[in-house]
């Protein structure tokens, strides 16, 4: 304690928020240098979220893995997901980051002719 300090009173400021479950809604994009690896993310997702997730390994200099909810892959082909991530998400992240994907997927169905 400094010489001219008479007393100290600890103060705690806290933000308390509700831990929302699921923590991750649709997917996670892992940077290659992210502090957590895909196994940890996967296991965490397995533990925390009932919905199953698909692990997609990416050969990219920034992104190493994508964890996507398998339900999403029913509606969007895998390649599209990868393409979307690489084109849209990648520019937004660094290799050391982990991005949370929250996707709204609308399917426009068109029937042709008969």
């Amino acid at each position: 304690m400094a010489k001219n300090v008479k007393s100290q009173k600890p103060q705690v400021r806290a933000k308390v928020r509700e831990f929302v479950i699921p923590v991750v809604r649709d997917g996670v994009v892992l940077g290659r240098e992210a502090p957590l690896g895909c196994v940890a993310i996967r296991r965490a997702l397995d533990l925390l979220i009932a919905a199953p997730f698909e692990h997609i390994e990416i050969e990219d200099d920034v992104i190493s893995d994508i964890m996507i909810r398998k339900a999403i892959l029913r509606r969007i082909p895998r390649e599209n997901v990868i393409d979307f991530v690489l084109k849209s998400v990648k520019p937004l992240m660094g290799a050391e980051e982990i991005m949370h994907l929250d996707l709204d997927v609308e399917i426009m169905v068109e029937y042709s002719g008969r």
Binding site: E33, P35, L36, G37, C38, V39, A40, R43, H55, E57
Partner: peptide, 16 residues
Amino acid sequence: YPQRIFADLLPIGAAD
């Protein structure tokens, strides 16, 4: 990767 678990430190695919 000091924070990763060992499973994430293994060569890719090793854990799976």
